[in-house]
C-alpha cells in the first residue's frame, strides 16, 4: 500500500485508460465509463482526475488526433505509465488479498 493512494474514481479512470490503450482522452474515457459501468460522470470531473493522475505519475500523455468534431483541435491522449500499471496491480493485489479473507457467507453455520 505504500504510496499508492487511489480514490475510487481515480482507480476507475486508471483502469479505463488502460483498457482504451492509446485512445484514452476526456470524452472517450467518459463514454467508456458510461458503457462499462452505467455511471454518468461529468467531463470536467474526468479532466480533473486525468490531470491529477498525470501529476502523480500514473499516466503519461501526448497531443494528437485532431478531428473535425473538435474544430481541428487535438486531443490529449493518455496512456498508463509503468508506475500506473504497478499501482493497478498493487490495488488489485490488495483487493484480492482482502477478498480472500472474507468469511464464506451462507454455507457457514458453525456460529449460527
Amino acid at each position: 500500500m505504500k504510496g499508492y493512494h487511489l480514490g475510487e474514481l481515480e482507480e476507475l479512470v486508471l483502469l479505463i485508460v488502460g483498457i482504451l490503450n492509446q485512445e484514452a482522452y476526456g470524452v472517450s474515457v467518459a463514454e467508456e465509463i458510461k458503457s462499462q459501468t452505467g455511471r454518468k460522470v461529468n467531463i470536467s470531473a474526468i479532466h480533473t482526475v486525468l490531470n491529477r493522475l498525470e501529476e502523480k505519475g500514473f499516466l503519461k500523455s501526448h497531443m494528437g488526433g485532431a478531428t473535425e468534431e473538435r474544430g481541428g483541435r487535438r486531443k490529449r491522449l493518455f496512456s498508463l505509465s509503468a508506475s500506473g500499471r504497478a499501482a493497478i496491480n498493487e490495488v488489485k493485489l490488495v483487493r484480492n488479498r482482502l477478498y480472500d479473507q472474507l468469511p464464506p457467507l451462507a454455507l457457514d453455520f458453525s456460529n449460527g
Binding site: V27, M63, E69, R70, K75, R76
Partner: peptide
C-alpha cells in the same frame, strides 16, 4: 489546457 478542454467540449456538443 485550452485546446484539450475546448476540443472535448466541442466533441460532446456535436454528440
Amino acid at each position: 489546457r485550452l485546446e484539450q478542454i475546448q476540443g472535448d467540449a466541442y466533441e460532446i456538443f456535436y454528440l
